[in-house]
Design a protein around this nucleic acid. Structure first.
Lengths: 108, 108
DNA sequence: TTTCTTAATCGTAATTATACGATAAAAATA
DNA sequence: TATTTTTATCGTATAATTACGATTAAGAAA
């Protein structure tokens, strides 16, 4: 039973880790995160000017990052102000560094 | 020019980071990496017994991990012996921890 | 009120990912 | 040699991703 429970926890960790990694799994989304890290807030239009992508595509990537819990978006009038979500970024750090540790410890 | 060069380097880093993250972006592949970390070598058939996936599907995931440089496969007679690729895992650790650091430093 | 701006969503097309069974190839075994 | 074992690959179906332009909705400005 303890075994089963441990397995369930492990599995949900795997699923969450994979979901975070998936959100990072496109150059545009990595770039967006770095842009948001460089300034403490940003609008979709600003990102669209920086990246060689259409506004609708940038909006889609922003949605993916938001769904993964890595960024927040707060409506400010006609625009939406995006910024990194501290909780999500902490989770990203925790889950991925834990994975790295697990893999490194038995490998390198 | 220094600026342009820096940008190119940055972009290749972003692309590689995204590629590594993409390889991690599926629960089955995270599970496979953990299985390989638990023992220093493994055959496709062993993994197929552990995971609820068909042999051909496991083989596909192994190929994805190999293409991303995260695992090695050496043919041993009729079987293939898979194990973590230390270089790839080091890269994983470097690129993702650097990303975490970049995002954490301005966020949390 | 009308026009403009901004971002989300819709519709769509093309590509990629995921999963499976079936098959093929190569080595081990009978 | 014939059979078995193991894994990669093929063929295929379905779903998801990625990208774009067009449209919509909501607020700001004229």
């Amino acid at each position: 039973m303890a075994e089963t429970k441990k397995l369930e926890i492990e599995e949900s960790t795997i699923i969450r880790t994979a979901a975070i990694a998936k959100a990072l799994g496109h150059p545009a989304r990595i770039a967006i995160l770095k842009i948001l890290a460089g300034q403490n807030s940003c609008f979709c239009g600003d990102i669209t000017e920086i990246l060689p992508l259409a506004q609708s595509t940038v909006s889609q990537h922003l949605k993916a990052l938001k769904d993964a819990g890595l960024i927040n978006g707060t409506v400010e009038g006609v625009r939406t102000c995006y910024c990194l979500n501290p909780d999500g970024i902490k989770e990203l750090n925790e889950f991925l560094s834990r994975l790295s540790t697990d893999l490194m410890s038995t490998c390198c």
